[in-house]
């Protein structure tokens, strides 16, 4: 089980989502992807997509206008 960090600060939608989707393809089941974002719409479309795929998702506010979307790949 490994943790993968994905820095998407300064990236506007839909780039964080597409980057996360590509990264998830390379990962194994049980791995955790942590996406750093500062674009509020990624806080919605990224968790929406991941939950729709059936992964476990948590969003944490790490600073003013900064979030971490934590996705556990379950399948």
């Amino acid at each position: 089980m490994k943790e993968v960090m994905l820095d998407c600060f300064g990236e506007a939608c839909p780039i964080p989502l597409v980057k996360a989707q590509n990264k998830m393809k390379e990962m194994d089941i049980g791995d955790i992807l942590i996406v750093s974002i500062d674009h509020s719409c990624a806080m919605k479309n990224l968790p929406d997509w991941a939950r729709g795929e059936g992964h476990n998702v948590e969003v944490e506010e790490t600073g003013d206008g900064e979030w971490e979307v934590v996705i556990e790949k379950v399948k």
């Binding site: 600060f9 300064g10 500062d38 509020s40 600073g63 003013d64 206008g65 900064e66």
Partner: peptide
């Protein structure tokens, strides 16, 4: 709205491409 939610941030420019 962004100030009330305390989500104001000046974003960095990542690349010339941007």
């Amino acid at each position: 709205a962004v100030l009330f939610a305390s989500q104001f941030k000046i974003k960095k420019i990542k690349s010339k491409k941007q």
